[in-house]
Design a protein around this nucleic acid. Structure first.
Length: 415
RNA sequence: GGGGGAAUGUCCCGAGCGGCAAAGGGGGCGGACUGUAAAUCCGCUGGCUAUGCCUUCGCAGGUUCGAGUCCUGCUUCCCCCA
């Protein structure tokens, strides 16, 4: 798809060579726009949670590169569309979030953008609630609705597939598409933005926006989508034992974030280095060439770089150091995640409740099962008796190390 | 409007003659093997103050010693006819 196109602009060149591009509505046209300088592009983000997760890193990095290559990135918060609720997740009986909740989520998400975009140098963050909530149904239909070609929308893959399979396609879903399309035109009008980027699943929505733009007399608009990210073994990115890999530090510690990248599959290392770090390409090529156990070095670099981007260099180094002590020396690093418990409670506490307290397991029942499977360890010794209790001797300097499996460790601190 | 079908372990799919904490997958977690990888093999995958107790099969009632299973009403979804 991109094989025979040689971009002249830095923007497209970087994105293509680093593997960000899946589809583009018009490579040559967009290349020219980018070359002319000052290219403005936006990506929409949902406000359904208080933090974004790694799945959103890809689009965020695209905006980052846009700014780095001289463009102007816009992060669009779906404050308005979130109020409608994206129906694509189907029967998920999506709960409607309150407006305050959405505002809170926006704040949480903003923290992340601050790290990747320079809002003092042209990057902006906007919220489609600003215009969407003011729409009047009749006016909208007359001014905008008449430009939507249902024929065209019917021919889109997402819609066609639903119809062919006799699957439900609700009216609200159809409208969601229209709102997103309208966003594009509105943002173009307000900010002279001609490019919308997003995941490959957004292709249909983005193209609908381009189409609407043409009909409403907007300048030529462009679409650029990123590939859907899956790991080499086909699983979707971003989910892990403890749930989603959140970007906010208060929802997932920098150490755990570092671990997430450290545990990357071999087959993903090169791809991830290109997508999630800013390392120069020749450096990545060198790292990717490492084979066998040496590839672990590349994984450490990946973890360091990715963590540094999000949580800062200091936090990344601390995480790396903690990991080195824990895994390579088997020493108890005092920077492992820590849970404090009053000393009076800690001494004599049953092992089961201790692991629950440390949030390594969800229930005493699970703790019991893990013990049976040999998965729980106290100070690196397997726990075999579920009725054992913590004694003063288990605490060194007031700290006991609890482990689930080989990778998850928590320090229980008696205070 | 008429007729037919469906809803199951709160991750998903999915079996279930009236005795069910409920088959089987996928996914996830743990163990072995490794390189904190992949592949492979094995175990686990409702809760608890635990030889017992409690809560689960769309919702609400009913029949029964006993109901995911039978009956009635309701909700939601799908299909066919109009």
């Amino acid at each position: 798809m991109t094989a025979h196109f040689t971009p002249k602009s830095d923007f497209l060149r970087v994105l293509i060579e680093r593997g960000f591009v899946h589809q583009c509505s018009d490579y040559a046209g967009l290349d020219e726009k980018a070359l002319a300088g000052g290219l403005t592009a936006y990506i929409g983000f949902d406000c359904t949670a208080a933090s974004l997760h790694v799945g959103s890193m890809l689009p965020i990095m695209m905006l980052h590169w846009l700014q780095k290559t001289g463009g102007k990135p816009i992060a669009l918060m779906g404050g308005g569309t979130t109020r409608v609720g994206d129906p694509s997740g189907k029967d998920e009986a999506r709960k409607l979030l309150s407006v305050e909740q959405i505002e809170q989520n926006k704040d949480g998400i903003r923290q992340v953008f601050d790290k990747f975009l320079d809002f003092n140098a042209g990057a902006i963050m906007i919220d489609n609630a600003e215009w969407l909530t003011k729409l009047n149904y009749i006016d909208f239909l007359r001014d905008v609705g008449r430009h939507f070609s249902v024929n065209r929308m019917m021919s889109m893959d997402s819609v066609k597939m639903r119809l062919e399979r006799d699957q439900e396609l609700s009216f609200i879903e159809f409208n969601y598409m229209c709102l997103q399309a309208y966003d594009f035109v509105e943002i173009n009008r307000r900010y002279d933005c001609v490019l919308q980027m997003g995941g490959s699943d957004q292709w249909g929505n983005i193209v609908t926006g381009i189409d609407l733009g043409r009909r409403m007399g907007a300048p030529q608009l462009y679409a650029l989508t990123a590939p859907l990210l899956t790991t080499a073994s086909g699983a979707k990115m971003g989910k892990t034992a403890a749930g989603a890999v959140w970007l906010n530090a208060d929802m997932l510690s920098p150490y755990d974030y570092w671990q997430f990248w450290r545990n990357t599959e071999d087959g993903d290392v090169a791809r991830f280095l290109k997508l999630f770090t800013l390392l120069p390409m020749d450096e990545i090529t060198r790292l990717a060439a490492l084979g066998g156990a040496e590839i672990n070095e590349a994984k450490k670099v990946l973890a360091n770089e990715a963590t540094a981007l999000l949580h800062g260099r200091t936090a990344a180094e601390a995480a790396a150091e903690t990991a080195r002590k824990t895994f390579e020396e088997g020493v108890v690093a005092d920077s492992l995640p820590t849970v404090s418990v009053p000393a009076s409670e800690a001494i004599g506490m049953g092992v089961l409740s201790a692991f629950v307290r440390a949030e390594l397991v969800a229930s005493t029942g699970e703790a019991r099962r893990q013990i049976k499977g040999g998965g729980l360890r106290l100070n690196d010794a397997a726990v075999s008796d579920e009725r054992a209790a913590l004694s003063a001797g288990d605490f060194t300097n007031g700290v006991a190390k609890l482990s689930l499996g080989k990778k998850k460790h928590v320090l229980l601190k008696a205070e």
